[in-house]
């Protein structure tokens, strides 16, 4: 069993397609859906984990792409800008999964682990410097 985090981007033609239903039913994938959004321009974004055999994940991804939905690396939905971050750490208590964390207590430098991020957006409002951004923020 493998897990991959995917960012799906739907265009006007694909936005109404029931992609998640087919991933579960046809490819036996376990879905953990973090966030989905459709804009007024009828464009959609969805961030989800898919868990299953390597083959099923590959087939599922091929299916998604065939349906006209584009796939991006998950971390592109959320961006932490190391250059802007001052490592104050104000985000730490607002990150429920410790994706933003301090590795070395001697330096107290804040680091970001994209695989842990669940796109809750809790850090975005709580960064005084605007170092955290997401395509899902209003």
């Amino acid at each position: 069993m493998k897990t991959r985090k995917l960012l799906l981007t739907f265009n006007k033609n694909s936005v109404e397609k029931p992609i998640v239903y087919h991933l579960v039913k046809d490819f036996d994938l376990i879905i953990n859906l973090y966030r989905a959004r459709i804009t007024a321009e009828e464009q959609g974004s969805m961030i989800l984990d898919v868990t299953g055999s390597e083959k099923n994940i590959a087939d599922g991804i091929a299916f998604i792409e065939k349906e006209g939905v584009s796939i991006d690396d998950a971390q592109k939905s959320f961006r932490w800008d190391e250059q802007i971050c001052t490592s104050c750490g104000n985000c730490l208590t607002h990150c429920p999964v410790d994706a933003l964390h301090i590795e070395n207590k001697k330096t107290m430098k804040v680091v970001f682990e994209p695989d842990l991020c669940i796109d809750c957006l809790g850090c975005i409002d709580n960064c005084p410097y605007g170092a955290c951004q997401s395509i899902f923020q209003e």
């Binding site: 490592s87 104000n90 985000c91 208590t93 330096t107 107290m108």
Partner: peptide, 13 residues
């Protein structure tokens, strides 16, 4: 209670 800082120790260092 989980703690966090407004001041940056890393930048101070």
């Amino acid at each position: 209670i989980e703690s966090s800082s407004m001041s940056s120790y890393e930048k101070a260092l």
